[in-house]
């Protein structure tokens, strides 16, 4: 169980993490979401005692990271796949880390096998693709067989197969009772594996809880209708306080439920070819929730805003 309590970290005048609190429960994958620059990596560095927080605390089963005895046996982390000497072999990279805890060399070979890198154990890290380095980083995180795992954007640079493999590893870690915290700026990546979501924007908490709660709070829902008498129905729905959006063969009604629309249609003998409840994707919900806190806007939206010159 990880408890982050009112964590705050500033760099100069920049508040990277702002009074952030959340928990990560065992047996579950907790997705840590936020746009680029929202403070995910900073939070993780503060959790591991790499950066000193200005205020607040992080505890792992009640203990601060720096107070853990043999920390790698409690918490495994992957912050950046690039954190390895390019001139060392994969095996030697794991060996120097294992030495700090007195792990036997057989443990190094075990994790290499676990991440499917036994064949390239003697290859230098500099020769690896980003995907291979992510795997090696995961091997480092698993080295001490920890009950808590912290991964910062582990899917970055992976091909779809690699992403799926990472997802399966996280799932099985959580299923064996471990606490897994995994960050991403892309909800799609996590929506398939996360049980809980912690969403942040500009260092502040936006939402925390089960994925389904996040959906009902932030995802849009509407009613899709296809009908030969659509215009007549639309007039009636608007009279009941709904909003209409025309599509090619019918339209969407907002601010009303499917039940309401169905009853209005029945009461007025209107023929319906389709009546269905629709919900926006998780991605849309995420973009919606973090919209106000996106620090860097993409090229396209910048062009839209600044167009016309």
């Amino acid at each position: 169980m990880i408890v982050v309590d009112r964590l705050t970290k500033t760099y100069g005048a920049k508040k990277a993490v702002d009074d952030l609190s959340f928990t990560v429960a065992p047996g579950r994958v907790t997705g840590f979401l936020g746009p680029n620059g929202s403070g995910k990596s900073t939070t993780m560095r503060c959790m591991l005692g790499l950066d000193a927080a200005d205020a607040g605390s992080v505890t792992f089963d009640g203990k601060r990271y720096s107070d853990l005895d043999q920390p790698l046996t409690h918490v495994g982390s992957l912050l950046d796949a690039g954190d390895a000497h390019k001139g060392r072999s994969a095996r030697n990279h794991l060996r120097w880390i294992a030495m700090t805890h007195g792990f036997p060399e057989s443990r190094v070979d075990e994790v290499l096998h676990q991440v499917g890198m036994s064949e390239v154990a003697k290859t230098k890290v500099g020769k690896f693709s980003l995907g291979m380095r992510q795997r090696l980083g995961l091997a480092v995180a698993l080295l001490g067989n920890p009950h808590t795992i912290i991964l910062d954007e582990p899917a970055n640079g992976l091909d779809p197969e690699g992403i799926r493999w990472t997802r399966d590893v996280m799932r099985s870690l959580a299923d064996s009772g471990r606490s897994v915290l995994v960050s991403s700026h892309q909800l799609v990546e996590l929506s398939l594996v996360a049980d809980d979501l912690v969403v942040i924007g500009q260092g502040k908490l936006i939402s925390a809880g089960p994925v389904s709660d996040f959906m009902t709070q932030h995802a849009k829902s509407w009613v899709r209708v296809v009908s030969p008498q659509f215009d007549a129905l639309a007039e009636l729905v608007v009279a009941h306080g709904g909003r209409v959006e025309r599509t090619q063969d019918g339209g969407d009604f907002h601010a009303v439920t499917a039940i309401q629309v169905g009853e209005i249609a029945a009461a007025n003998n209107i023929v319906l070819h389709e009546l269905s409840s629709q919900t926006g994707s998780l991605e849309e919900a995420f973009l919606d929730a973090t919209d106000a806190s996106v620090e860097f806007r993409g090229e396209s939206s910048a062009a839209q805003n600044g167009g016309g010159q």
């Binding site: 005692g49 990271y65 700090t100």
Partner: peptide
């Protein structure tokens, strides 16, 4: 400096926070 240029300093300090 090898630790800083190669990023291993973070792993070093995570393995030995003391």
């Amino acid at each position: 400096t090898q630790e800083y240029s190669q990023g291993t300093i973070r792993i070093t300090l995570v393995a030995t926070p003391h």
